[in-house]
Amino acid sequence: MSSSQPTVVISATLPADLRAKVAAACRIIDVPPGASLSEAVPEADRALVEGVLCTLKTSIGKDQLAALPKLRVVSNYAVGFDNISVPMASEHKVLVCNTPGVLDRAVADLTIGLLICLARGMVAGDAFVRSGAWTKGAAPLTMDIAGKTLGLLGMGRIGTLVARTAKAFDMKVVYHNRRRDQAAEAEGLATYVERDALFSQSDVVSVHIPLSPETRGAVGKAELDMMKPTAYLINTARGPVVDEAALIAHLQQGKIAGAGLDVMEKEPLPADSPLCSLPNVVLQAHVGSGTVETRRAMMDLAVANLLDAMAGTQPKAMVNPDTWAAAQRRAA
C-alpha cells in the first residue's frame, strides 16, 4: 500500500473481492456499522479520511463532518440517504452518492407480492391450513385484484415498475406525484389524480415517496380517513412517511381493511408492537432490496461510486452533483 493512497472508512460488510478492490486503491479504516464516525475513527486518522462507504445505520451530520475535515465523498449503500444531512454535506463540499436503479425491480416485486398477499389473504390462508381449520370448513372468501384501482403515491422508477406489473393484472392504476409523468400517461400506465382523490378512490394505496422533512408523516389520519373501509395500504418506501400510530388505530378499528409493510418507524420492529398482533397486517423485515442479486448490485455500485470519486472520475450516482466540481477542487 502506498502512503499516497487516500484513506477511507468502511462501515459496511463488503464481499472479499470488493474489499480487495478498495484495498488496492485506498487505505481502509474499518468502523462497525452504525457507530459514530466522530468517535469510532481514531483521532490520529480523522484528518486523513477522504471517503466513507456506509449503510443507513451511519449518521453523517454536523459532528461527523467537523471531525473529518478532509472528507470529500460519502457513498451510501442504499438508495435512501436520510441518514445524511445532504445540505450540510453540500455546504462542506462533500459529495453524497447512493445506489438508485439497481434495486427498483426487487422493491416493485415485493410491493406486488404484498398486494397479492393482502387481497387474497395468503398469510391468513396459510395459517388456516396449518391450524387444521380447513378440516372444519371452507376458508373465508377474499378479493379479486383484477378491475380494482391501485393508487400510487409517488411515480418514480419503482412506482412506474409497479404500475407496469399491475396493468398486467388488469388493475386500474392512478397516481399522484409532485410532477406529472407525461410518458407514463401517454403509455397508458397510469392516470394522474389529485392527492385526496388518490386516497378516496383507490382499493389499494401503495407508497413510493422518499423520506424527507416534508414527507415525514405524509400519510396520516387525514389521508387514512379518506380511504375506503375495504382498502389496503402498502408501504415499501420508508417507515416514517406513514404516521404509524394513526395507521394502527385505523387497522384496529377496521377503518381500512389491512396493510402490507416492509418498513416501519422503528426498525427492527419490536415484537410487542401492535402491528405484530394485528391479523390484517402483512409484515416484512425491510427486505425490498433483499435478494442476493440486488444486494450485490447495490454493493458494486456503492464501491464504484467511492472509488470513482477517489480517482477523480465522476461517480455514476450522485445525490448532490453540484458539489462534484467543488470536490474536485478540494482534491487538487
Results as ranks from 00 to 15, higher is better:
residue 217 G to D: 01
residue 207 V to P: 06
residue 220 G to W: 00
residue 283 L to Q: 00
residue 262 D to C: 08
residue 281 V to K: 01
residue 247 L to V: 06
residue 271 A to V: 10
residue 291 T to I: 07
residue 289 S to T: 12
residue 255 K to Q: 13
residue 291 T to E: 04
residue 178 R to P: 02
residue 275 L to A: 02
residue 171 M to H: 13
residue 241 V to L: 03
residue 190 A to N: 06
residue 248 I to W: 05
residue 295 R to Y: 14
residue 173 V to A: 04
residue 201 Q to R: 12
residue 239 G to E: 01
residue 235 N to L: 00
residue 295 R to I: 02
residue 273 S to P: 06
residue 249 A to N: 10
residue 186 A to H: 10
residue 191 T to Y: 10
residue 254 G to S: 10
residue 240 P to K: 12
residue 241 V to Y: 07
residue 191 T to L: 11
residue 294 T to A: 15
residue 265 E to S: 15
residue 291 T to Q: 05
residue 219 V to Y: 03
residue 199 F to D: 01
residue 175 Y to L: 06
residue 198 L to R: 00
residue 252 Q to W: 11
residue 255 K to T: 08
residue 184 A to L: 02
residue 261 L to E: 01
residue 276 C to F: 14
residue 226 M to G: 14
residue 295 R to M: 10
residue 219 V to G: 07
residue 242 V to C: 05
residue 179 R to P: 11
residue 202 S to A: 13
residue 279 P to A: 03
residue 288 G to D: 02
residue 257 A to S: 06
residue 293 E to R: 04
residue 225 D to R: 14
residue 221 K to M: 13
residue 264 M to I: 03
residue 202 S to I: 03
residue 238 R to C: 08
residue 169 F to Q: 06
residue 256 I to S: 00
residue 221 K to S: 08
residue 282 V to E: 03
residue 174 V to I: 15
residue 302 A to W: 09
residue 270 P to R: 11
residue 269 L to F: 12
residue 215 T to F: 10
residue 254 G to D: 03
residue 228 K to M: 12
residue 191 T to N: 01
residue 222 A to F: 14
residue 205 V to T: 00
residue 253 Q to N: 15
residue 204 V to I: 06
residue 201 Q to E: 15
residue 299 M to G: 03
residue 265 E to Y: 09
residue 212 S to V: 03
residue 189 L to Q: 05
residue 273 S to D: 07
residue 281 V to E: 02
residue 236 T to P: 04
residue 203 D to G: 12
residue 184 A to W: 03
residue 171 M to P: 07
residue 186 A to C: 14
residue 215 T to L: 12
residue 227 M to V: 09
residue 194 E to H: 13
residue 289 S to L: 12
residue 186 A to Q: 10
residue 298 M to V: 14
residue 254 G to W: 07
residue 271 A to Y: 14
residue 238 R to E: 03
residue 255 K to E: 01
residue 172 K to C: 15
residue 196 D to S: 13
residue 286 H to C: 07
residue 233 L to T: 04
residue 230 T to L: 09
